[in-house]
Amino acid sequence: MTTLGAIYLPQHPPEELRDVARAADRAGLDELWLWEDCFLNGGVSASAAALAFTERLRVGIGIMPVPFRNVAATAMEVATLSRMFGDRVLPGIGHGVQEWMAQVGARAASPLTLLREHATALRALLHGEEVTVSGRYVQLDAVRLDWPPPSPPALYVAAGGPKTLALAGQVGDATVLAGGTSPAEVAAARDLIAAPGPHELVVFVPALPGDSAHRLIAWQEKYKHSFTGLSGSPTEIAEGVASFAAAGATKVILQPLPEDDPAEYCRWVAEEVRPLVG
């Protein structure tokens, strides 16, 4: 069965998250994903709050930019969330937007090398291993978590380009594709990931109810994406979701626009679209 979720955009102030997360939980939404866009909401703090506000909702961090963080700090944060909230925690990491990384003096000369080193060390730490490594970006000397999670969480890796997609298949348990990715691009990404075992493929999909194509076209033109998004009745949205599932996506996370009511959007996804998705 395809997992169907929704995104809480960081363009909304943090204090609104409590009501949105609770509305999503009450409506039975599968997953709520949070973005850590600069310089808006913090991904870890927002996800911790959303998890604490709810009982069953799974919460994804999509994503934590690795140039921002020492890998030991990332591991400590993820392990803490995992011990408190179990498999409801869905941690995601990625390159981050390079212009934003440059703004804070953290842009890596080789983002791919940094992501490989960070993901490899993070997985080992979350599995309770002692890690010593002297890489180009990651240096650890006999580091081991005192409180590793009893069951390490799946690690989600954001990817877009061919090299990062291949890396995600090597170092992650799941890959996250950005909004504006078409079903054909999902299928191509699945081939590039080429993971040796089970591997979740998450895609963010702009989707709006009713006659909203003009709003999505404006969004597409602004961000120069190849795919406009989905709009229409719940049945039409569900058919669009099915096209992504057929292309290989295991999780389709629907994305509103900043002017949409986030609580109502989560309710619409959970109560009107979810029952129509296989």
Score class of each variant (00 low, 15 high):
V176Q: 09
V205L: 04
A187W: 10
D260W: 13
L140C: 07
D191M: 13
T164S: 15
L114Q: 10
A207Q: 02
A189T: 00
S45M: 13
V277N: 01
W35E: 06
D141Y: 13
V186E: 04
F244N: 00
P256I: 05
L81W: 02
L125R: 00
N70I: 02
D146H: 08
T235C: 09
A187R: 11
K222Y: 14
R58K: 06
K251S: 13
G5W: 14
G94D: 08
G180D: 10
Q139I: 04
L177A: 09
R18V: 14
H118C: 09
T54M: 09
V176I: 15
L125G: 05
V205M: 05
A174R: 14
S47R: 02
A124D: 11
E259L: 09
A178W: 07
L114N: 03
D261F: 05
G229I: 04
A218H: 07
E200H: 11
P275G: 05
N70V: 02
M1V: 06
K222A: 14
G240R: 04
A6I: 13
A166L: 10
Y265M: 03
E239N: 08
P258D: 10
V133G: 00
L122R: 07
V138F: 09
S82K: 02
A184E: 15
R144I: 02
Q98C: 03
F53R: 01
P65S: 12
A207H: 03
A154D: 07
G210T: 12
Y265T: 01
E264S: 15
R123T: 15
R69C: 11
E236L: 12
W35D: 00
R215N: 04
G180L: 08
P149T: 06
A49T: 04
A72V: 11
E130W: 00
L112C: 07
P150C: 06
R107K: 15
L90E: 09
A174P: 04
T113E: 11
P91V: 08
P183K: 04
V176L: 14
V131A: 06
F227M: 03
I237S: 05
G179H: 06
T175R: 02
P209M: 12
G248L: 07
A46I: 00
D25R: 04
V176H: 03
G240P: 08
Y8R: 01
L34K: 01
L276K: 10
G248A: 01
I237G: 03
G169R: 02
N41C: 11
A154F: 05
L115V: 15
A79D: 01
P275K: 09
V44H: 09
H127Y: 14
V89F: 08
G94L: 09
E36D: 04
A168E: 10
